[in-house]
């Protein structure tokens, strides 16, 4: 699904150049549930933004679902984002003057789906999130967990291949965080590849693969069985 080779990214501010990603090689197969961890400044958010075509990269090679994502027109990038990727953000990023239903339906608006039809589909997705009765509430009338579930419904509605989530539980309490993770797990079981950026070990432990970034390179790449083992270690360490 995702193939990255020798990815480099620098931020240039004035005369200073900050080399954030220093050659990332990464392959993620379809249907994986991956978390990216790392301390702040390790480049994990930058990596996610590049994967989501929200930002560009300097060097290397990035293929998403077989498509080479290189310098392309904003129009083409928009089409990829719309069809292949669903975003979930830490701060939810719902449009404040649209109600839950309209927010969920937005990606379909950019697919030229008729209003009636997209509202119908949006209602279906909200219902799956258990939010049917909140469909006509504005975002500021919803709790954090509800907002994130609306955002997940919005990410899912365009039937993307990949869900990219940037600290999806960062603004939620533990209980709600687990609920959100359960939903994501469910989504993953339907075959959608999910990548989340997090710095919470317990959240990362719920995924099937953990990639740890340090200073712009991949320091660790732990898979399923190993994750469980690590969870136990973390548990042991906690006690």
């Amino acid at each position: 699904m995702i193939h990255i080779k020798g990815l480099h990214k620098s931020y240039i501010t004035g005369n200073n150049s900050l080399h954030v990603l220093k050659g990332i090689d990464l392959t993620i197969a379809p249907g994986e549930f991956v978390s990216i961890m790392g301390s702040s400044g390790s480049g994990k958010s930058t990596l996610l933004n590049i994967l989501g075509i929200l930002d560009n990269y300097d060097n290397g090679d990035y293929r998403l679902d077989g498509n080479l994502i290189a310098k392309m027109s904003e129009k083409k990038a928009a089409a990829f984002r719309n069809q292949l990727i669903g975003f979930v953000f830490q701060s939810f990023n719902l449009i404040s003057f649209k109600n839950a239903l309209e927010n969920v339906a937005l990606p379909l608006y950019y697919q030229q789906v008729s209003r009636r039809k997209r509202n119908l589909i949006a209602m279906e997705y909200l219902d799956r999130m258990g939010l049917a009765e909140w469909a006509h509430h504005m975002p500021n009338e919803l709790s954090g967990g509800q907002k994130q579930r609306v955002a997940i419904a919005r990410a899912l509605i365009s039937k993307p291949k990949v869900i990219l989530a940037d600290e999806p539980t960062g603004a939620l309490d533990t209980q709600t965080s687990y609920e959100v993770m359960d939903i994501l797990k469910e989504v993953n079981e339907q075959g959608i590849t999910i990548l989340i950026v997090t710095h919470e070990h317990d959240i990362a432990a719920m995924t099937n693969r953990i990639i740890r970034l340090r200073d712009g390179v991949i320091a660790e790449d732990i898979r399923n069985g190993e994750v469980k083992k690590m969870k136990e270690l973390a548990f042991a360490a906690a006690n």
């Binding site: 904003e74 719309n82 069809q83 990023n93 449009i95 937005l106 950019y110 365009s158």
Partner: peptide, 16 residues
């Protein structure tokens, strides 16, 4: 600006 960012991440083209 932020709304525009959200719309773009949902697949809005610059011309739209």
């Amino acid at each position: 600006t932020k709304e525009i960012g959200i719309r773009k991440s949902m697949g809005a083209t610059p011309s739209s």
